[in-house]
Amino acid sequence: MIVDILTGAIRSGTSVMFATQGELISERAGVINLGTEGSMLAGAFGGFAVTVWTGNPWLGALAGGMGGLMLSLIHAFLVLTCHANQLATGLTLMFLGIGLTSFFGRDFVSEQIVGFNPVPIPLLSEIPFIGKILFQHDPLTYISFLLVPLLWFLLFRTRVGVILRATGEREEVLHANGLNPLLIRYAAVMAGGFLAGLGGAQLSIAYTHSWVENMVQGRGIVAVALVIFASWKPIRAMVGAYLFGAAQAMQLAIQQMGLPISPYFMFMAPYVITLVALYVVEYKQRSQIPEGLGKVFTGVSSG
């Protein structure tokens, strides 16, 4: 039972986890991207379409990531170059993503793909308890396992990470050091879009093997919320995403036990549990919001 819930947590949390890490990179560099939902859809659709055409899910995953990247590039251009409002632009891109993918996706609803399938890792998957939870997943899920420590290392143990974080905190300092905050932000937003797209692709070509209109169903929005509640920390964001997945799996498991709890309450549970849990963590350990978040660098030092 507990094994099932934890396995389910990873199964349904992975797509959100990719998007959460992507949004985290973007916000660390100072750009909020509410278009994550749109990027996930672009990834889900792009990944599915390319997998249909080529029969190769790896190309599909790459295309999914690129789809998310392209959409976030529009965000970066509008926000960073044209100085548009970040929140409004993000929302617009979310709807653009829904519209574009619905329009081009019409003919793909009934397509069948082979896609990614669970690959049990030899030996490790035999370990009782942990083996089933962690080592019987699809390849993209394994990649997501590696992503988090990698991202943590990149952000907090390398020069690149320092520069990225500085961009989101004090861009003037960066500028004074001869670095271009604009370019770094572009790179961060695009990397974020790529990961969101990869998350969408995981949903379509690895988890469900399906494409339907608007199939992301708010997971991108959840990802944005998770980043804030995880106070911009990769490990905590990962826990948050799995918590969301666990709550989803748990509400289904509780229904199956036949407990007299209203499913309507259970539908709400993933969101409530995730938010409450992360809020408690955040409350205990107040952490700083990147100071430059939401601001736009104009190249002129205001100080």
């Binding site: 389910g8 199964r11 349904s12 797509s15 949903l203 379509s204 988890y207 469900t208 399906s210 339907v212 199939m215 992301v216 169903q217 997971r219 989803q248 799996a249 289904l252």
Partner: peptide, 8 residues
């Protein structure tokens, strides 16, 4: 129709 939730 939420394929993610259906798969779960």
């Amino acid at each position: 129709c939420d394929p993610g939730q259906q798969a779960t």
